[in-house]
């Protein structure tokens, strides 16, 4: 018998429904302030918007059909493009970082990870502000290059997709790095030696042993990274400028400037569905884990 089974019986029998005394407060909060608003928004997205406000007596799918309008479609494609670029770059950069981390001592790893995590825990607005100081026309990079006489006109490093990619990548990098690092550490070190005794060179070991065995973790991390990129708000808003808008900023404009809540709701629902779909995909990959097909 397991401890879990005993635990269930102990509390379940003694308290009966008493377990809900413990779960009740958090559950009530989540139902009232989380699920209810999300459901309300989903309902609003199915109503037409009229000059007099939301027409709750009629139902429509028009808000969702509008998502494929040329303008919004373009925004969606840009959001996808930027997100995918960031994820691909993160994956490429994560391997050398993870391998380096795994080679450090325990203390060194802790600190290095802390450094790589720092962009995540420092406020996105603050970071973006920092990036404007670096990437702007009078920023550190352009001033530096001008002082060196390498350029005459400033490079456009922000207020475009480049700016979004540069600014967003570090903040979500850890979602690729940490699972990969954990998978690397979990690898049986003898596998390397086994492969080498069989005549494999280090790079062959990396490509034929390390990469395949860490792929599930990497993939799961990459998907999470991708959904974070899709949903990011402050950094794209500040670094993308007025012409390079992404989905989340359009959602801000529609809801807070145009006050078109049914359409804003449709945007929210679309983002939610896409995100949950990808997260489930990632969970499927993680659940299959390293037990998945191997070579």
């Amino acid at each position: 018998m397991t401890g879990a089974a005993a635990g269930r019986a102990a509390l379940g029998v003694r308290l009966g429904g008493g377990v809900w005394i413990f779960l009740g407060p958090a559950l009530l909060l989540m139902l009232a302030v989380y699920l209810a608003p999300l459901i309300d928004t989903a309902v609003i997205s199915l109503h037409p918007n009229t000059p007099a406000g939301i027409d709750r007596s009629h139902w429509t799918t028009a808000n969702f059909l509008r998502l494929v309008d040329t303008y919004y479609w373009g925004v969606l494609v840009r959001t996808l493009r930027v997100s995918i670029i960031i994820t691909l770059l993160s994956v490429l950069l994560a391997y050398p970082v993870a391998v380096w981390l795994a080679g450090l001592g325990p203390r060194g790893q802790t600190w290095a990870i802390l450094v790589y995590m720092s962009p995540w825990f420092v406020n996105a607005v603050v970071k973006s502000f920092g990036w404007t100081l670096i990437l702007g026309n009078n920023g550190l990079v352009n001033n530096g290059l001008r002082a060196l006489g390498l350029i005459d006109t400033p490079l456009r490093l922000m207020l475009n997709e480049t700016g979004i990619v540069i600014g967003l990548l570090p903040g979500h990098f850890l979602f690729v790095l940490l699972p990969l690092w954990a998978a690397l550490k979990g690898l049986d070190g003898n596998l390397r030696w086994a492969a080498m005794t069989l005549g494999a060179r280090p790079w062959q070991v990396f490509l034929r042993v390390t990469v395949p065995l860490t792929l599930p973790a990497l993939l799961a991390g990459a998907i999470i990274n991708f959904t974070m990129n899709m949903a990011a708000f402050a950094a794209p808003a500040l670094l993308g400028g007025t012409r390079t808008r992404v989905l989340s900023f359009i959602a801000y404009q529609v809801n807070l400037e145009e006050l078109n809540w049914p359409f804003g709701g449709a945007l929210a629902v679309a983002m939610l569905v896409v995100t949950l779909g990808f997260v489930m995909l990632a969970q499927g990959i993680t659940a299959r884990g390293l037990a998945g097909p191997r070579r």
Partner: peptide, 16 residues
């Protein structure tokens, strides 16, 4: 796995 710990827990009142 013979159930001796379960027996003890029943006597103790950890399980019913």
């Amino acid at each position: 796995g013979c159930g001796k710990t379960t027996f003890l827990r029943l006597v103790a009142g950890i399980l019913t």
